[in-house]
Write a protein that binds this DNA or RNA. Sequence first.
DNA 1: GAGACCATACTCGGATATTCACTGTCCGAGTCCGGGCGG
DNA 2: CCGCCCGGACTCGGACAGTGAATATCCGAGTATGGTCTC
Lengths: 160, 160
Amino acid sequence: MKLSNGVEWALHCCVSLSQSRTPVPAARLAELHGIPPAYLAKHLQTLSRAGIVHSTAGQVGGYRLTRSAEAISALDVVRAIDGTEPAYRCAEIRQRGPLAVPAEQCTRPCAIARAMAAAEDAWAGVLSRITIADLASAIDTDSDGAALADLRRWLAAAPR
Amino acid sequence: MKLSNGVEWALHCCVSLSQSRTPVPAARLAELHGIPPAYLAKHLQTLSRAGIVHSTAGQVGGYRLTRSAEAISALDVVRAIDGTEPAYRCAEIRQRGPLAVPAEQCTRPCAIARAMAAAEDAWAGVLSRITIADLASAIDTDSDGAALADLRRWLAAAPR
DNA sequence: GAGACCATACTCGGATATTCACTGTCCGAGTCCGGGCGG
DNA sequence: CCGCCCGGACTCGGACAGTGAATATCCGAGTATGGTCTC
């Protein structure tokens, strides 16, 4: 089980965007995090399609959050980048082989699929209760209030 | 995020093995579940290396569980097949770019990594509390006690 | 001086190569059973 | 009749191709800005 690398970038970008009042170009976000600009752009497009960020074209364009950081959960971001389908996908192998269970008896998922689904629900539950604002706050606490202040200052400074 | 297909096979195989007193060859487990024998063998080898099943060579050889079904959790099987490293791996991008945090300040994981780790802990916690015996019991209940009885009968029958 | 127009530069967006892990398969090494032989 | 030996077949184990998704990149379409020209 491996989570796309872009999830980390997207989360960091959302936290960064939450600290800026003006749109931030993808290239600037990439520079801030030291990651490939072109590839990050692809993930930001995905966030845009998911309705988490809004893109503005033109000279002073860029990305901004569509709603407040309190209203965006970590799960929203993860689902947007990684997709919504569950990690465990039951292939219904109980319906195969010499002891195949007839399809009409399979009204509910098999016990193994139920167990895996319960685990994923617990995982999603934790992430759904964490917001971008929570993450920003935690980062701020870790750095004694310095990190976000520096971040806001850097974002407000002239691009070059 | 995608979980290896072999996880499903491994869980079903463990449940099946819990119903047999004698070793079951990989080919027979594959026939039972209608899946490619050679590929299943690969996963069973992995389970063997993880110490979950024990292999016996020779004419009446095969695989058997190393301990009781109550003592094997679903997490044990998932970790054996899928690996132990977490789905989310922090690349420490906070230490990169113009606002890089000095390494000596990074005594604990960054807030985002902590959040993702908490979610994975919840996921693992659910799976660790589910045993192979629980799964077998649930399957039995679903089928009104028919499935496991049929399974034991089929496993005890002559191979061909 | 004010308004409209236009050239410009900057932005995003999708279409396109490349790499890596998962999927799937095969053949060789090792082992245990069953029959045959000798005592 | 009993024990030993050997042939055989079956088992696992690791080494070897194929495929799809994630990774990484580029260039074209669209837009807001700023300056310039006209009224």
